[in-house]
Amino acid sequence: MTSSATVVPTAEKGTSLGADAWRRLKRNRVALAGGIALVLIVTACFVLPVLLGMDPETTDPTRKNLPPSLQHFFGTDTLGRDYLARVLVGGQTSLLVGLAATAAVVIVGVLYGAVAGYYGGRVDEILMRFVDFLYGIPYMFLVILVMLMFSDTERGNPIPVFFALGLVQWLAMARIVRGQVLTLREREFVLAARVTGAGDMRIIVRHILPNVLGIVVIYATLTVPAVIILESFLSFLGLGVKLSWGQLVAEGVSVVNPIDSYWWLLFWPSVLLALTLFSLNFLGDGLRDALDPRTRR
């Protein structure tokens, strides 16, 4: 976010905030492992199905409810579909929804919160009362409303889902950022920047946003799982996207019974979901530390 306006390597060792952050991130083993795991999951979900020509839809009545084997690594489901293909293709939706909705949340929430907090007074009052108003509406109601607005779009199109989920989640981000900006605005380094004649834009971009970055990163990594889970709930209600981890988990739960347990139907999507969420949290933690010059080694 902060550009590297400080790299002119004539002095000791000119390092920009970005390069510095990367160096610190590389030293953080846990965060690095999280990052690598995330990259692996994303590549698997988006590249493997295309590369191997996997088909998550074709049913085969002769191959129903098979446990994991060499032929079907993840087994097959109750309609005889290859479960590996279904989990990977379902991951595409979940990851896309999670990351895209979070990106929207970060952009909208941070800008909104920063403006409200920085200008304060009336502006703040109006902007934040609007947030309160949206908070007051039960979020399911809001989501269903949005989905209905898009009802003529093709079923399974993820755009309305991004929109609906983003609409719910940006409120908390805006509140968090506003609170931070409110205190930062009074800090003396911001006053100093004003005394030197820096404009509002410069103060927000150079002085305030870099200092809320840490908390934004953390909250964003918490938003991704929240969105993925919310999406699976929507899927469960029949409002979501066709195929996602959330939906697979829901289906998997429904077939687990003490007599004839098809455990793999629940196991695989849950494991991948959990793995993704863990990786994100570790990576987010590491990013926050890496972006803070005070954690220097």
Partner: peptide, 26 residues
Amino acid sequence: IIFQDPYSSLNPRMTVESIVGEALTV
């Protein structure tokens, strides 16, 4: 202006070069 608290008066995310040089750029 020079402030009382030398901890809160410098942006923790900026290098000394950016802090001192900001006014020159502005």
